[in-house]
Simulated assay, not measured.
Amino acid sequence: MAHGVCELLWIRRLLTKLGFKLEKPIELHCDNKSAIDIAHNLVQHDRTKHVKVDRHFIKEKLEKKIICLPFVKSEDQLADILTKAICGRVLHDSLTKLSISDIYAPT
């Protein structure tokens, strides 16, 4: 998530230099509720010691309203067709969203 925030900050800076005024926070969609909760939670947990610096970095950007972390259901993640085994319905829906069709299908 921290790498994604860094990329969003770079894109935000680039858009600002190109003359676009960003009025709303940039959305970083995440399908991991635990990661979103850790990013928003002020209390440090023992299980998150190794992500302490990243969590503070993300929390700072959330508080400044530079980014927001909306939850997206795993079946709505388009990248999942490249990284996970998914059911046929989800695969078909993802391919439709990506405008990928079967060129051998009868017309």
Rank of each mutant, 00 (worst) to 15 (best):
56 H>Q: 14
32 N>K: 03
28 L>F: 01
46 D>Y: 10
56 H>R: 12
46 D>W: 08
64 K>L: 15
94 S>D: 02
2 A>H: 10
33 K>G: 06
62 L>W: 02
96 T>C: 11
68 C>Q: 15
30 C>Y: 00
90 V>D: 08
15 L>N: 09
5 V>D: 00
60 E>V: 06
95 L>P: 00
36 I>T: 03
11 I>H: 05
76 D>S: 08
18 L>D: 05
89 R>Y: 09
80 D>V: 02
64 K>P: 08
32 N>S: 08
92 H>D: 11
99 S>K: 13
13 R>G: 10
38 I>H: 02
71 F>Y: 14
46 D>L: 13
31 D>Y: 00
77 Q>W: 03
19 G>R: 00
4 G>P: 00
103 I>E: 12
52 K>C: 13
89 R>W: 07
63 E>C: 09
24 K>P: 02
72 V>Y: 00
105 A>L: 06
20 F>C: 09
13 R>Q: 14
65 K>F: 09
84 K>T: 02
84 K>G: 02
74 S>A: 04
69 L>G: 03
28 L>M: 03
22 L>F: 01
29 H>L: 12
88 G>T: 13
90 V>G: 06
41 N>V: 04
23 E>V: 06
35 A>C: 05
71 F>C: 04
29 H>N: 14
98 L>H: 03
3 H>Y: 15
70 P>S: 05
105 A>M: 05
20 F>I: 08
86 I>Y: 01
30 C>D: 04
56 H>W: 12
60 E>D: 15
60 E>L: 13
52 K>F: 11
6 C>K: 10
42 L>W: 12
21 K>N: 12
85 A>M: 13
72 V>M: 03
42 L>R: 15
103 I>C: 13
17 K>F: 05
70 P>H: 03
96 T>N: 13
90 V>P: 01
12 R>Q: 03
90 V>T: 10
51 V>H: 05
54 D>C: 10
30 C>G: 02
45 H>N: 15
98 L>F: 02
44 Q>L: 13
105 A>W: 07
26 I>S: 13
3 H>P: 11
34 S>V: 09
50 H>E: 09
103 I>D: 14
75 E>Y: 14
73 K>I: 07
70 P>M: 03
73 K>C: 07
107 T>F: 15
40 H>C: 09
19 G>P: 00
24 K>D: 07
88 G>R: 14
105 A>K: 08
4 G>K: 00
33 K>W: 04
97 K>R: 10
87 C>S: 11
93 D>A: 10
2 A>W: 10
102 D>N: 15
104 Y>R: 12
75 E>M: 06
50 H>I: 10
78 L>F: 02
33 K>S: 12
12 R>C: 01
24 K>A: 05
102 D>S: 08
106 P>I: 04
19 G>H: 01
41 N>C: 08
89 R>Q: 12
12 R>L: 02
101 S>D: 12
78 L>I: 06
17 K>D: 14
65 K>C: 13
52 K>W: 07
65 K>I: 08
68 C>K: 14
37 D>C: 12
63 E>G: 05
83 T>F: 08
11 I>V: 10
83 T>N: 06
74 S>D: 07
9 L>T: 01
14 L>Y: 11
64 K>S: 13
35 A>L: 01
42 L>T: 15
86 I>E: 00
39 A>Y: 00
23 E>T: 13
97 K>E: 07
5 V>G: 02
67 I>M: 06
34 S>E: 15
58 I>C: 02
30 C>L: 04
101 S>H: 14
93 D>M: 06
